[in-house]
Simulated scan of single mutants.
Amino acid sequence: MSTSTRGRPRSFDREAALDKAMRLFWARGYEATSIGDLTTAMGIGAPSLYAAFGDKASLFREAVQSFGAQFGQFIPRALAEEPTAEAAMRRSLRDAAVEYTRPGYPQGCLVMTAGVNTNSGEVADLLRELRTRNIGLLTERIQADIDAGVLDAEVDAPTMARYIGTVLQGMSQASRDGASRAELEQVAELAMHGWGRTAPKV
């Protein structure tokens, strides 16, 4: 009996291939990354990609999960470990300056940039839900300090959380435009001057 392996898909390191796909999506965004780009970066053929990961959208979802596990935990970690919302927000912003300018990786945050100009409602919804979830976590932590009397009762937790989230998104884009870690750390410190203030009525 013949023991030829002709026709069998070439074996590959799935985790290494996923990491390469994640970096490509991170650098180029979902829409600008083609299947051809992915197979070239991952070092596999299209049949192997589809067999291992499904379609492009499925691969992207898995890449986003991998990104979150590796690089997206600095905000939840700060919220869990710091004694006050103020300390957690300051740490989150400063950690973002480090994460968004990490040497050897694409700049910025995949979750904030990979969906730009996408025609995929599924991808846009996925990334929006993740960003909204983070705003929710920030809101809960701020509200906890309001309830405990640490922050003034007039502080609006959702607005303050949105403020921090907006600064984070701006820092992500600035890093992609060439802002350095030191510059973003200065932005982080400046942003905290608005901490705990109430927005004027409009």
Rank of each mutant, 00 (worst) to 15 (best):
L93H: 03
A41W: 06
P76R: 11
T139N: 06
T84I: 06
W26R: 10
A27V: 00
E99N: 06
Y100D: 10
E86Y: 01
A51W: 01
G121H: 12
Y105T: 00
T101A: 01
A96I: 01
T84W: 02
F25N: 11
L18N: 07
F53M: 08
R90D: 11
G43R: 00
A32S: 15
E99P: 00
C109A: 10
T40S: 13
I75W: 09
E31Q: 15
R23M: 07
A32P: 00
A41C: 08
D95G: 02
G7K: 07
E15L: 10
T139L: 05
L93A: 09
R131Q: 11
Y100R: 04
D19Q: 14
P83L: 03
A32D: 15
M22I: 04
R61F: 07
R133I: 00
G36F: 02
A96P: 00
V64D: 13
L38Y: 11
A32K: 12
E31L: 14
I135L: 07
P103V: 08
D19H: 08
Y30M: 12
Q73K: 13
Y50F: 09
Y100N: 06
R10L: 13
P83S: 07
T33W: 04
L127F: 04
E122K: 05
Y30H: 15
K56I: 01
G54Q: 10
R28M: 13
P106F: 02
G36K: 07
D55I: 09
L93V: 03
E99F: 05
L18I: 03
R23N: 14
T139H: 08
R10Q: 04
E99A: 13
L126D: 11
D19I: 06
L38V: 09
A41D: 09
I75H: 08
L130S: 06
K56G: 04
S48R: 09
G29Q: 13
R133T: 09
R77V: 12
M89W: 04
N119S: 15
D13L: 12
A21N: 02
T101K: 10
L130D: 10
V116Y: 09
T39D: 13
A32L: 15
A51M: 09
R6N: 09
D13K: 05
G45F: 05
Y50C: 03
F60Q: 02
F74M: 11
R94Y: 01
A57Q: 08
P106I: 01
F25D: 11
S48C: 05
